[in-house]
């Protein structure tokens, strides 16, 4: 059964600390996103999540599926995620343009890929396998970058476009990641947005980040998901909505987790911005 899913309202990331409170208080959230890796080894959390799935639309966002790993997908993990998909009946499925395992070792991070023919083959093969195994369209998220590879032969947006073309997957456009990467790598964030295949974007993400000063006096933005969304990210979100129209939008907050009310207030802000952009766009059109 497919649950009613109003993507006009932003959802929020649901972390273990909030599960019991969500079940008790039933907050007015439009939808939640969960990381399967947080609950697969936690039967109590999985039990609560199954109850929450009956009340709210859920999105499954895997942080450990490692679609870019040259040593292959972890099929045991994929089977466990499939079990969760069957149990929770999610409305969206997503993961990252990144790798996090090597030869069976889990590195607990979203690590960067060079963008060339070989990595394209690897990630396309894995996304096809994920989509077949889980029976859902995969939404591939653009990463936050701190460095690039000399071997890359294409831009990130060209790479994403080609993955979409080859696999039929969709894109999860993490607006904050675009700002983070643009700052860290020295390119224009709006130009990056302009280069994305807009029709393939199925979801937006917004998360908090932190600025650090580097030894040479330059600055780097760390994608921490531990703070409110910054003004620059809200502005870029408005730009993306203006360009592509509304999509399901999610507020991510993973560490230094505040009360659910704070997350819902951020989601409400996303809704207001999207609504205003659409009003402005309509006004321009008439």
């Amino acid at each position: 059964m497919t649950k009613p899913f109003s993507f006009r309202q932003a959802g929020v990331g649901l972390r273990l600390e909030h599960l019991a409170k969500v079940l008790r208080d039933r907050p007015a959230a439009a939808w939640f996103e969960v990381h399967p890796e947080n609950v697969l080894a936690n039967p109590h959390a999985a039990e609560m999540l199954a109850e929450i799935a009956a009340l709210y639309p859920l999105s499954i966002h895997s942080v450990g599926i490692s679609a870019g790993s040259a040593s292959g997908l972890d099929r045991t993990h994929l089977a466990r995620v499939r079990g969760l998909v069957t149990r929770l009946d999610p409305v969206l499925l997503s993961g990252h343009l990144a790798w996090s395992t090597h030869d069976g070792e889990y590195l607990n991070d979203l690590l960067p890929l060079p963008y060339h023919a070989q990595s394209l083959d690897v990630i396309c093969r894995h996304i096809a396998e994920i989509q077949d195994a889980l029976g859902m369209v995969f939404h591939l998220e653009n990463p936050s970058n701190y460095l690039g590879f000399a071997e890359s032969t294409m831009t990130e947006t060209a790479f994403l476009t080609e993955v979409v073309k080859r696999t039929g997957c969709r894109l999860l456009c993490d607006v904050s990641n675009i700002h983070v990467s643009a700052h860290n790598m020295g390119y224009d964030a709006r130009r990056y947005v302009d280069e994305l295949p807009g029709e393939a974007i199925g979801e937006f993400h917004l998360g908090g980040f932190e600025l650090e000063t580097e030894p040479g006096g330059t600055s780097v933005i760390i994608d921490t998901h531990a703070r409110p969304i910054a003004t620059e990210a809200w502005d870029l979100y408005a730009y993306a909505i203006h360009r592509f129209g509304p999509r399901p939008t999610l507020i991510e907050w993973d560490s230094a987790l505040p009360a659910m009310d704070v997350l819902l207030a951020e989601a409400a802000k996303a809704d207001r911005i999207a609504e205003q952009v659409l009003v402005d766009r309509h006004a321009l059109a008439v």
Binding site: A150, E151, G216
Partner: peptide, 8 residues
């Protein structure tokens, strides 16, 4: 040597 960034 195979990585690049506008900083160290």
């Amino acid at each position: 040597g195979r990585l690049h960034a506008p900083a160290s």
